[in-house]
Design a protein around this nucleic acid. Sequence first.
DNA 1: CGACACATGTAACACGTTACATGATTTG
DNA 2: CAAATCATGTAACGTGTTACATGTGTCG
Lengths: 180, 180
Amino acid sequence: MTIRAGLLALLTSEPKYGYQLKSEFDNDTAGVWSLNVGQVYTTLDRLERDGCVVAGATDADGRKLYHLTSVGRDELATWFAEPVAEDAPPRDELLIKILLATKTPGVDALEVIDLERQALHEMMRRHRRQRLRLNGDGDLTADLLLDALIARIESSLRWLDVVEERLVKARKSRTGRSAR
Amino acid sequence: MTIRAGLLALLTSEPKYGYQLKSEFDNDTAGVWSLNVGQVYTTLDRLERDGCVVAGATDADGRKLYHLTSVGRDELATWFAEPVAEDAPPRDELLIKILLATKTPGVDALEVIDLERQALHEMMRRHRRQRLRLNGDGDLTADLLLDALIARIESSLRWLDVVEERLVKARKSRTGRSAR
DNA sequence: CGACACATGTAACACGTTACATGATTTG
DNA sequence: CAAATCATGTAACGTGTTACATGTGTCG
């Protein structure tokens, strides 16, 4: 739904062609969620099939321009009008993984936590570096996006600490009992 | 990948049947990511096709038991050994939506933010209520999961505040200029 | 000239999701 | 007895993803 709605959003201002949509989406998400071009075309096909867009005339350079229809406009309006956080949160691989790690025999949850922590730190470093690079570009969007990503990672890191603490505590009390 | 790996993880301790896997997964994720039973069976089919599990004999009650194979064990080990946060973060609908809302003509980003904020607050209330209910159950996992979800929502809410602030600031400076 | 960005598409597949069908067993 | 839970499955579909094929234009 994300990409589909994203393309509709990009088409509201004016008709655009596939490759252009890819570039704009990439820019608007600061390159964080770069699209595979092929996917833009397949998604456009589906949008056309569903009557959300129509492929009008080509532009001066022979590029096929897609126009938003009223159906598409409606779908987009609905997307903006309905909150994302409706029911269940999206399945989060990190959370599920850690929870299962604590319950799976033969898997040391503390090791998994450490691994994920390192990867998150690396990710955060990358984001911070990118934010520094962008600083001064005046690109508000990119800045906001990076803020969100960094904040989310920090939240994950704090959570990993909490989980680790509880595991260590549980482990200590267990060895304490068995060592008596 | 999440469900697939999840089923493998649940099968490490002993052979299990489909319905059992569904219940255990639901429990392990505190009902937050409840599985559709049908999906368990289709995923098991795919796992069998890929040689990760084999359907052995049925148990005393005639339920089909799936055993983990060495291939499955390997795949699971790889899953645990590779960090989730590898490259790009998962496409986040909320972030993309807000970013696009600020750039889409005819859409009031402040309204969208407000809507999402309300939904997030509602979600958080639900999680907190559930955490209170569970308190005393001694279910460590559920508690940890709810902690993570609440923390994530708080992080999203803070971010929405930041975005709103910047938008209001930008809007003010614009009207200030035009009103002169 | 060679590499790279631009530009459009197709084929195949993985994963997830929903809805439907069917029947046994348990329990209020 | 009726309803709910247990239990297994199938069919159809939507989205996303990758890899591949193909061609034009541009720039060093």
